[in-house]
């Protein structure tokens, strides 16, 4: 390594800058891939279409075209809107996504921050996006936006609970809140004394995984829980009045958050960056770990988007009923059973 690189890495600002860059890559790259693979191509396949084909081979550059289009558009502010709040709202939503990705490990040494309270931190900052959505809904000075914002807030607050409770099972089983340690616990775990494939928690915490997926779907406001943006009722909900770059930010936020939540789900339940058969301490994982993560993210998001393309939308009260009468009791039961089994075994 030459001198200036050493100096750069030994300084404080060097790694900090690198981390920021890494965060951007870790959020935007999967988001773009998800939009192309699922929104453009899988959705078209499901709906008997071929999707975008003109921009680039198999339409793979369509996303760039869309981004370029969004940048060319006029940034419209409704006349009665609260300008500052209206302008800031998309950034607040996107900020929560970037804070989320901080605690996600991509390899034994490839992480941004290794917090002891990693998953707790992630669940905490995921709720920040509600503020942004409420800001957008209120500041747009539109009834559709306001209704959409209120629906989103009610939904996100309600589904935070099953989300956290579903994670609790994993935390009890792993005995730690640290995301890196959760991965290691799965890598080094054993199923009835057999450690051939470790112990991915999807096997022992299947109920938790299912609840986590459902709650995640609701947190992401994807169908069947997309009332906040229900296009046949509220036009676009809290995004109705946005155009151009600010709409693009919401759009990125939607898919980036899907990607990051999928990362968290794969860390919690699918073993994160680890694959069976390789020593989890191996340096190899610093290279293939991100790729492994991406593969698992693709699997989780496949579930998310498959539901999105297939299912109709719940009504608001049915959504709340599902949450309070079904998901929360089951996840509480899951915690009790996990705790008892943890003590027994």
């Amino acid at each position: 390594m030459s001198g200036w690189i050493d100096t750069f890495f030994d300084s404080y600002w060097g790694p900090t800058g690198l981390r920021t860059l890494g965060g951007l890559v870790a959020v935007l790259l999967p988001a773009g891939a998800l939009v192309y693979i699922y929104l453009f191509k899988l959705m078209s396949f499901v709906q008997s279409r071929i999707g975008p084909m003109e921009a680039g081979p198999q339409g793979s550059l369509q996303l760039l075209a869309e981004v370029g289009k969004a940048f060319q558009k006029e940034d419209i502010f409704p006349r009665k809107a609260d300008k500052i709040v209206f302008a800031l709202a998309p950034f607040v939503v996107l900020m929560s996504t970037f804070l989320l990705v901080l605690v996600v490990p991509f390899g034994p040494d490839a992480w941004f921050v290794n917090l002891d309270t990693g998953i707790y931190f992630a669940l905490a900052v995921s709720s920040v996006s509600v503020i942004g959505i409420l800001m957008a809904g209120w500041a747009s000075a539109s009834k559709y936006s306001l209704l959409g914002g209120l629906r989103a807030a009610g939904q996100l607050i309600a589904y935070e609970l099953p989300l956290v409770l579903a994670v609790m099972g994993v935390v009890i089983q792993a005995g730690t809140l640290n995301m890196q340690d959760i991965v290691l616990a799965q890598a080094e775990g054993e199923i009835f004394g057999w450690g051939g494939i470790g112990n991915p928690f999807i096997l022992t915490q299947f109920v938790g995984f299912a609840i986590f997926l459902i709650a995640m779907q609701a947190e992401l406001t994807q169908p069947p829980f997309d009332m906040p943006v229900a296009e046949s009722e509220l036009v676009s909900g809290y995004m109705t009045e946005y155009s151009g770059v600010r709409f693009l930010l919401f759009f990125i936020g939607e898919f980036a958050t899907a990607g990051v939540f999928a990362m968290i789900a794969s860390v919690l339940f699918l073993g994160g960056w680890w694959v069976p058969g390789i020593d989890p301490d191996s340096n190899l994982f610093n290279i293939v770990g991100p790729a492994v993560m991406f593969g698992k993210v693709l699997f989780v998001t496949l579930l998310i988007f498959w539901f999105r393309f297939t299912y109709p939308r719940f009504r608001e009260d049915q959504l709340q009923r599902l949450c309070w009468k079904f998901l929360i009791p089951i996840s509480l039961l899951n915690i009790v059973v996990t705790g008892v089994l943890k003590v027994v075994f």
């Binding site: 002891d116 707790y120 931190f121 509600v130 807030a153 607050i157």
Partner: peptide
């Protein structure tokens, strides 16, 4: 970081959101 995360979860994620909720529902 635990206290920090709790601060975010409880105050920003829950209490302020309820504040905003109430304000927007009653006198938006």
């Amino acid at each position: 970081d635990f206290v920090g995360a709790t601060q975010v979860l409880v105050y920003i994620g829950a209490i302020i959101v309820l504040f905003l909720f109430g304000i927007m529902l009653t006198k938006a």
